[in-house]
């Protein structure tokens, strides 16, 4: 049998990455609250075989807490980037297909949202909506669609000038029909790749906002909360409370980012043949 080709390798690699993420997510969901509940007898233990990430000031196992926190982060990240990507498609498509006025207003909106630093905007939205899960979700979703919307606007503009779209119109098809059957299917790869690459951003923002105290409530096992709590003990030499959960978060983010890049290579017609 001939050696596996480059595309096969890439697909297998990407699938493996997705599998790792899925396992982490499932673990976080399946681990019961009680498993992470600790006792003061075990407080502030350094990493060991029993507690791979050590324990925190309340004696809770940090490994389990990190896993739970990650799954919360992933839920928020996925939901927020999905909402954001849908907004991006709607705005991008409307901007390209609509009148000149609509285009101008939407472009102005994109510039406006991009012009304000994300963290501040998320903070404000999250705070205005009473913090917690919903505020955080709304904040992240409302700030991450801009660059994808621009990309999609360009794509739709380019697609609309294609000859087969003009032919379709002369064959009597309506604008809505053309949008649905000729244009939107072409946007699917952009949408998926955009969504996946948005995911790590969303997770990081979630963690940083929670860390600052404007996101999830302190009783929720979120990475941002874990990191914020660990700050008090860092000067006492209890490095594991911050370093290990932090590293895990970074590796997850890198993993998703890499998977997104692979996906882009596979779906992009220019690189797909390489």
């Amino acid at each position: 049998m001939k050696q596996a080709n480059r595309r096969t390798k890439l697909v297998v690699l990407t699938a493996a990455m997705v599998l790792v993420l899925a396992v982490i997510y499932a673990c976080g969901i399946l681990i019961p609250e009680e498993a992470a509940a600790g006792s003061f007898l075990n407080a502030k233990l350094p990493p060991s075989l029993r507690h791979p990430f050590g324990t925190d000031a309340l004696g809770r196992d940090l490994f389990l807490r990190t896993l739970k926190g990650l799954s919360v982060s992933m839920t928020i990240g996925l939901a927020a980037s999905a909402i954001s990507a849908v907004i991006a498609v709607l705005v991008g498509a409307a901007s390209a297909a609509g009148s000149r006025g609509v285009d101008a207003v939407l472009n102005w909106l994109i510039d406006l949202v991009m012009g304000v630093p994300h963290t501040i905007l998320i903070l404000l939205i999250s705070f205005a909506l009473g913090r917690g899960l919903n505020g955080l979700l709304a904040g992240i979703a409302a700030t991450h669609w801009c660059s994808l919307a621009r990309l999609i606007r360009g794509e739709v503009l380019q697609l609309r000038s294609q000859q087969y779209v003009a032919v379709s119109r002369r064959l009597g098809k309506s604008s809505g029909w053309i949008m649905l059957y000729h244009l939107l299917p072409h946007l699917a790869p952009q949408f998926v790749v955009g969504l996946v690459l948005m995911f790590p951003h969303a997770i990081l923002h979630e963690a940083s906002i929670s860390f600052l105290g404007f996101g999830l409530p302190p009783e929720q096992p979120a990475i941002g909360i874990i990191l914020a709590e660990s700050m008090r003990y860092l000067s006492a030499g209890m490095w594991w409370m911050a370093v290990l959960p932090g590293l895990t978060l970074v590796s997850i983010v890198l993993l998703v980012d890499k998977a997104g890049e692979h996906l882009k290579t596979l779906l992009d017609p220019y690189s797909a043949q390489e």
């Binding site: 080709n5 595309r7 096969t8 697909v11 797909a272 043949q273």
Partner: peptide
């Protein structure tokens, strides 16, 4: 070339 799926 890559065809449909993984076939080369």
């Amino acid at each position: 070339m890559y065809g449909r799926g993984l076939e080369q």
